[in-house]
Simulated assay, not measured.
Amino acid sequence: MKIVQVKDVSSKPNPHGVDARSISDTESAQVVHITLQPGESLKKHITPVDVIFYVLEGVGVVEIGEEKAVAGADTLIESPAKIPHRWMNESNSVTRILVVKTPRPREATRLL
């Protein structure tokens, strides 16, 4: 058994400039914990694999392709591979999102 505490994993520099912590990276999937402070957002990008987002805390605006929605805690959002997407925190509180990429990407995410 492997147990990971998010607080024990360091955030890595990323092109979005947000707190992103890789908490699992196996042959079959990647799991990243993202924290968006008020006013922070991810840059629009394309991921080469399917992505599942699960909002852990707060409220964020998710944009996938031409669709945009407000998503709060305990909401799961599916984002198909190769569709532009991003998250924005337009609230006054922290938004935390669990990101699951499956299968594990073999090529890099592309910023738009």
Rank of each mutant, 00 (worst) to 15 (best):
K2A: 08
I3N: 11
V4N: 02
V6M: 08
K7R: 12
V9F: 07
S10P: 06
S11T: 08
S11H: 06
N14P: 01
P15M: 14
P15W: 14
H16M: 05
V18L: 14
D19L: 05
R21Q: 05
S24F: 11
D25T: 05
T26H: 02
E27I: 06
S28M: 04
V31H: 04
V31G: 03
I34A: 02
L36P: 07
Q37F: 01
P38S: 12
P38D: 11
S41R: 14
K44V: 14
K44A: 15
H45A: 11
H45T: 12
I46F: 04
T47F: 03
T47I: 07
P48Y: 03
P48Q: 08
V49Y: 01
D50T: 03
D50G: 13
I52R: 02
V59N: 11
G60E: 03
V62E: 05
V62F: 12
V62I: 14
I64K: 01
E66D: 11
K68N: 10
A69D: 09
A69S: 12
V70C: 10
V70F: 05
A71I: 15
G72Y: 05
A73T: 00
D74S: 07
I77S: 02
E78Y: 14
I83S: 00
P84D: 11
R86D: 08
M88C: 06
M88A: 15
M88N: 08
M88K: 14
N89G: 11
N89D: 06
E90Q: 14
E90L: 14
E90Y: 11
E90S: 12
S91K: 07
V94P: 00
V99N: 04
V100M: 06
V100G: 03
T102N: 07
T102R: 07
R104K: 10
E107V: 15
L111S: 04
